[in-house]
């Protein structure tokens, strides 16, 4: 398992038009790599580095008396990285661009193949909204192939899965961003592990399912031990525990796969979700 870069170098600039609804790209594009990205977007660059991004092309579109439009085209190296970084920020409505998209407040994001695309209008107007959506469609069309989402997310049972409920990541800081577990990296996450978090509706409440695929059964066992020792030492023999809020946390290890259910309202429901994940794994 690795974040291999698939395919060769692509002329990122050729994927973007020079003009859109009167907005023109007058300045030269700027290309950033994992070392120089901080010159452009400061610490937020760590999010893209956490998904092993390869290159970023930034292009600014201007039009008289209108807000600027900023196009950021990320070559993430693989489709699962593009999928993952897209799931980092799922605020907004799906506007049907690329393989999945969100639009909110002048920010259109989508992923397709190994690319993650962010199109941002510095102020949202009806004109900028139209231009962003058209620009998005053009870029998505110019990316010819589609990519495969990570296979790990196929293990999530679909029943009661929340819309936009799945996040895919490698890094424990990204996990904590979506669902705080512990300050320390008690699940031993890293670039060689694949992890996915899903939210499920359970009545009016939410429960969370975390899946982690380790590079081998030994590493998975180490992570399981670390989690039990730190998070639920009372459950060393049972792998299930009713926590302080009256809800259940359950963990299961199967070879290189670790499954954890958080905040289930019943013991049996937590166990049944784990069982359904295992059935999909087989």
């Amino acid at each position: 398992m690795s974040n291999d870069v698939r395919g060769g170098e692509v002329d990122l600039g050729a994927l973007l038009p020079k003009e859109i609804n009167g907005w023109e790209a007058k300045d030269a594009d700027v290309l950033y790599d994992p070392d120089t990205i901080f010159d452009y977007i400061d610490g937020a660059g760590e999010v893209y580095r956490a998904y092993s991004f390869q290159r970023l092309l930034a292009r600014i579109y201007t039009k008289d008396k209108n807000p600027r439009i900023i196009a950021d085209l990320f070559d993430m190296g693989s489709s699962k990285n593009a999928y993952g970084v897209f799931t980092h920020d799922l605020e907004g409505e799906n506007v049907g661009i690329g393989q999945n998209s969100t639009y909110k407040g002048g920010l259109l994001s989508f992923w397709k193949d190994r690319f993650f695309v962010s199109l941002y209008a510095e102020e949202e107007t009806e004109e900028t909204r139209k231009a962003l959506l058209l620009l998005g469609k053009i870029v998505a069309t110019s990316i010819k192939q589609e990519g495969e989402p990570p296979t790990l997310v196929d293990l999530f049972p679909l029943e009661n899965l929340r819309d936009k409920g799945i996040r895919f990541f490698y890094n424990h800081l990204i996990l904590n961003y979506h669902f705080f577990i512990a300050d320390e990296n008690i699940l031993l996450l890293g670039q060689e592990t694949e992890a996915a978090l899903a939210a499920y509706a359970e009545g009016k409440e939410l429960l969370y399912v975390l899946l982690v695929r380790y590079p081998g059964a030994d590493k998975a066992m180490d992570a399981y031990e670390s989690f039990i020792k730190t998070y639920m030492p009372e459950a060393r023999d049972s792998d299930i525990l009713r926590t302080e809020n009256g809800k259940w946390t359950a963990v299961r290890l199967k070879e290189d796969l670790l499954i954890i259910v958080f905040d289930s309202q019943s013991e049996s429901h937590a166990q049944s979700i784990i069982q359904r994940v295992l059935e999909r794994e087989e």
């Binding site: 977007i41 400061d42 937020a44 893209y48 900023i70 950021d72 920020d89 605020e91 909110k104 407040g105 002048g106 920010l107 994001s109 962010s118 941002y120 102020e123």
Partner: peptide
């Protein structure tokens, strides 16, 4: 609150 690569929105 923070959204997007530029970590910014007037909203």
């Amino acid at each position: 609150h923070t959204v997007g690569p530029h970590s910014y929105n007037d909203k």
